[in-house]
């Protein structure tokens, strides 16, 4: 089984979010980048399939060389090969079409992307990709088993879970639950050394199109100070929630 894990390279969760160039561009200076957490759960599940069932794990990123350290980290954790499609990523539609063009000539049995990236929160790459390739798609996936040619996955729905079954090739939108937090791997020295020898291919863009553009960013208005209510005056809290905030 060949697994392709789509990797997004995002600011660390504790990063300060600021913008430059008249609020048109995210300020990446001084920001630490990581593997998008949702993708890391998917990658870890893929490596589990490698260790248990001998799957081959490839990672792919659509973007600039800025993400190369992130892809090297994926190799150090256990992926066998990295691809980078060499174009700045413009929007979810653009990324999905670049990935689809790649998959048309490099078929894989299972494609795992993250539920959403934590920077632009589009949550559309795996779904659009599945749509273009007419493959079954399981989003918000919190459990995945493969048996021969059949994949069974569980997706989180509002207020519960749904178990779905389909045939490979399939696209997954992964998140925590695919593996546990404690299963995530930290690259060790041996992995880091091995990663240097692993194949890393930079491929040209297929010139897919973006359909949206972020023209400017804004930060939420600063918050008014909290109103503190003494612990022995809960009546006041109820009064405020009822009369002032109008929420109960």
């Amino acid at each position: 089984m060949n697994i392709l894990v789509c990797i997004s390279h995002v600011p660390d969760t504790t990063s300060k979010i600021n913008f430059v160039m008249d609020n048109t561009l995210f300020k990446s200076k001084g920001v630490q980048y990581i593997i998008n957490p949702n993708d890391e759960f998917g990658l870890t599940r893929a490596i589990w399939f490698k260790e248990k069932h001998g799957a081959t794990v490839h990672v792919i990123h659509v973007g600039t060389a800025a993400a190369d350290p992130t892809l090297r980290k994926c190799l150090a954790i256990g992926a066998d090969k990295a691809y980078r499609i060499d174009t700045p990523a413009h929007d979810g539609n653009h990324v999905a079409h670049e990935l689809a063009a790649f998959l048309k000539t490099n078929s894989h049995d299972l494609i795992i992307a993250g539920r959403e990236s934590i920077d632009y929160n589009g949550g559309m790459v795996p779904g659009i990709l599945a749509g273009i390739l007419n493959m079954p798609f399981i989003p918000n996936c919190v459990g995945l088993e493969i048996d021969g040619n059949t994949a069974t996955g569980e997706r989180e729905i509002d207020g519960g879970r749904e178990k779905l079954k389909g045939t490979l090739p399939m696209v997954i939108g992964g998140q925590k639950g695919l593996v546990e937090e404690s299963d995530l791997k930290i690259p060790n020295m041996r992995g880091i050394m091995q990663a240097r020898q692993k194949p890393f291919e930079v491929i040209p863009s297929s010139n897919a199109m973006a359909l949206t553009k972020e023209v400017s960013f804004e930060k939420p208005a600063p918050k008014a100070a909290v109103k503190l209510v003494p612990a022995d005056d809960i009546d006041q809290l109820i009064e405020l929630l009822h009369k002032e905030a109008n929420v109960i």
């Binding site: 979010i17 920077d119 632009y120 929160n121 553009k213 972020e214 023209v215 804004e218 930060k219």
Partner: peptide, 12 residues
């Protein structure tokens, strides 16, 4: 965008 830490004005 940025998980509620910002808003993006987006043209379609």
């Amino acid at each position: 965008a940025f998980t509620n830490k910002a808003f993006a004005n987006t043209t379609i």
